[in-house]
Design a protein around this nucleic acid. Structure first.
Lengths: 368, 368
DNA sequence: GCTAGTTTTTACATCGATGTACATTGGCTG
DNA sequence: CAGCCAATGTACATCGATGTAAAAACTAGC
């Protein structure tokens, strides 16, 4: 038994195909009687609209792509969860694409995967340059999250520089003066790492602490092993920091492990703070202080903005030259806050003392 | 400038639309000269095939759905990475769908999301029953991973019972006799938790250790907080285990945290072992012993099997009654191995001593 | 130079849903 | 009850790519 078509429903309900279509799409002027008859026929046949047909006709798929470097980096996974929820609320389906931080993959994503089946893209770039962005004409509407690229694209992120300054100030407030930055970079790029490094330097400057470029530990990628290894290397070369500003929680968790292996007590000898507030940091030994971005807000704002762009794109397609007032690119900033735990405060038993926006709906545990 | 169509390419190349299509699809009988002309025209216009048209015509989308309960459960994220890679190799695109362990969502996934735009589904069910599975006629080809449902569906997983028995034997071999099972369940369902609990009981029986149903700690979900909380509750009720068999690593990590808060030394006083071998367990304090499934193999086998099913489905659609020899459902078992780390062995510094299949291509770190 | 056979190319119909433009129906006003 | 308007419903063309069937172009053999 083949899948039923609109034609079959129409025949069963005794109306035209278009009327069935009208019912499906909640068109206003359909009498209740007709509507009911069609609904019954749909029910009886188990009819489901065929996306291909609709897509071909309307040019929309209702699918947006979420393009991220690595799915198994917990931060991205947590973010993805929020994006999916937000998209579902707008009856959009999310297609997740993983680039492996590869420039070609990111470019492919930008141009809609060589075909046209995504209506929009939320992209977390790592390897992409602003040139790539500029060249990608004909791409579907795109919103960037995380990294900021100079050229005018829509963008959502926390104020990374400010967040890093606050985190550094916290460490300075604990009396630490030798603060190393795992993942820090001081070059001219406009990336997240650079912004956070700037915040770090600003805090140092304000506190009158000298900045030593050797305090920046470069990493290959921002994953746990890199954090562990880069710190191990630094320690073996004689570094003796009293605090670590890790540019994400994965690096911090790796660093915690290395400190443990070296028998260095946290936070007594070395205080550690990260970024992202991933779940693992709430259960590590010691628990991890961190800069917590409002992930739900990032997701919400990003999806909302993308939807607006998609609507604009559709609109201008029909009205053509008229409303081609492409609104200027938005650069939206989302809230963050410092979450202080054992790795800087030393306090224990904070496990259930947390509350607020960041807690709600985190995982299936939220079902209770 | 609108996207070019096949028509535009045909006009520019001075051939018919079908010829362009033939070139695109590598049809054999096209002269080199024509082929080159068409290729040039495609190049010049920047033509990309429109998926909607192709989909409508062929009934295939090249998209498969990976349906999992929670994206931010690291095990699923890691698995997803492998599935994506495997699918890419076969030029399939993966759409990731998150059910939140919700039955309705899982059902929706089974039936192709109410529309027809996925060619196949890889589903990791949690709440679904075998009845649901049986009822879902007209669904796209589906391969289950993880949970085993009784009714004949294709299925890929490790031998959970055997794995749990080995893990338990390991704990018994350390002289532990009071082994609690976090996440354990002893009911009649055919789930992963049940299989692992059976393995646990088998090991106990073989070693002549009495089985106490109170050793099974139920959990709401299989996430870190649940592990922490269920163990805390048990301890407060007077439980004094000398080992914990945690049915996944997230539970184990939560348990480690609770043990730490209670000042209980691992593994001296309590040995801990988990399942899944997620990255966090390689860097926790202490590092986590675990049953490591060959995730790459799970992904590879699942995608391969699904592709075969999809091909069969297409084939029988054209040949109709002839080749409707629906091959019987496969139940494939993938390798696993015990990875012993500090939480049972107490040895330190194993960090870089690991090697083997499980290590390769884990994350961007593999780029070096 | 013609026939038979093969390769290359084409015109046209088709996949399923929906927009357009028009036909029909019913209700209301005067 | 004619005349109009608004509410409903319909026929048909269309979105873009590709399968079908058949025409056109070419090759080889005699």
């Amino acid at each position: 038994m083949a899948r039923p078509r609109i034609k079959d429903v129409a025949r069963l309900a005794g109306v035209s195909e278009k009327t069935v279509s009208n019912v499906i799409n909640d068109y206003t002027h359909v009498s209740d009687r007709t509507r009911r008859a069609v609904r019954d026929a749909i029910e009886e046949l188990g009819y489901k609209v065929n996306l291909a047909g609709r897509h071909l006709r309307q040019g929309r798929t209702g699918i947006i792509a979420l393009v991220i470097p690595e799915l198994d980096v917990p931060y991205f996974a947590e973010l993805a969860r929020h994006v999916i929820r937000e998209a579902e609320r707008r009856s959009l389906t999310v297609l997740i694409h993983q680039t492996g931080a590869d420039r070609d993959h990111e470019l492919a994503a930008l141009t809609g995967f060589g075909s046209s089946f995504v209506d929009g893209v939320i992209l977390s770039p790592l390897a992409l340059t602003s040139d790539d962005l500029r060249d990608s004409a004909g791409a579907p509407p795109t919103v960037l999250i995380g990294e900021l690229l100079e050229e005018g694209a829509d963008h959502v992120a926390i104020d990374n520089e400010k967040a890093a300054r606050e985190a550094t100030e916290h460490l300075l407030g604990l009396g630490r003066r030798s603060i190393m930055v795992i993942g820090g970079r001081d070059d001219a790029r406009l990336g997240t790492a650079e912004a956070r490094t700037r915040g770090y330097r600003a805090a140092l400057a304000e506190a009158g602490v000298a900045y030593d470029p050797a305090a920046l530990l470069p990493v290959e990628s921002f994953r746990t092993p890199d954090g562990a290894e880069s710190l191990a290397r630094a320690l073996s070369e004689g570094a003796r920091p009293d605090a670590l500003l890790c540019l994400n929680d994965q690096l911090a968790l790796g660093a915690l492990r290395t400190l443990h292996e070296h028998g260095i007590r946290v936070p007594e000898e070395v205080a550690v703070i990260g970024f992202d507030d991933v779940e693992a940091g709430r259960f590590s030994v010691p628990t991890l202080s961190t800069v917590a971005p409002d992930k739900a807000a990032v997701a919400q704002v990003a999806v909302e903005l993308l939807q607006r762009r998609m609507d604009e794109a559709m609109g201008s397609a029909s009205t053509d030259a008229s409303s081609t007032v492409v609104r200027s690119p938005q650069d939206l900033v989302v809230a963050h806050r410092l979450v202080l735990r054992e790795s800087t405060e030393g306090v224990s038993g904070v496990l259930r003392s947390e509350a607020g926006w960041d807690r709600q709906g985190q995982g299936a545990a939220g079902r209770e």
